[in-house]
């Protein structure tokens, strides 16, 4: 690891890490573009993949404009949990070798949290995922 840090500059290091911060900043842009933020070229398909991973696909499709819904400055028009999961989807879509979740499922109900943790174990096999959690219970799964 030391060597990696030594060899890489910050940019290429960041290319290898996807990160879900504690506060979920979204751009006032469509949900599709928000999820595809880390990609060179994303489509509604890639956005949906991320959304399914984060368990927010049903919510988004429930909106009148679906993935084209514009989230408003700082994502004001979404509920706390929806915002958080879109932020998870955004990190997942980047498909980086390392995924860090910093207390990222705190605003999500138990059922959805379950889905996400389940998806992490299944879909990120062979890649590193770091979960920072305030509650011990999250580690059980």
């Amino acid at each position: 690891m030391n060597q990696v840090l030594y060899l890489s500059n910050i940019d290429s290091l960041r290319d290898h890490i996807a990160y879900v911060p504690q506060d979920n900043f979204l751009f006032s842009d469509s949900i599709e573009h928000n999820i595809n933020f880390g990609l060179e070229s994303g489509t509604e398909e890639t956005a949906r993949m991320g959304a399914i991973f984060a368990g927010v696909d049903d919510d988004v499709r429930g909106f009148n404009k679906g993935y084209q819904t514009v989230s408003g400055e700082r994502g004001v028009t979404l509920s706390g949990g929806q915002k958080q999961r879109i932020s998870i989807a955004r990190a997942y879509v980047k498909n980086a070798p390392i995924l860090i979740l910093d207390d990222s499922v705190s605003a999500v109900d138990t059922k959805t949290e379950e889905t996400i943790l389940h998806n992490i174990t299944n879909e990120r096999k062979g890649k590193t995922t770091l979960v920072v959690a305030s509650r011990i219970q999250q580690f059980h799964s």
Partner: peptide, 8 residues
Amino acid sequence: KIIQIFNQ
């Protein structure tokens, strides 16, 4: 912060 994290 997000822009930097995602290298955009």
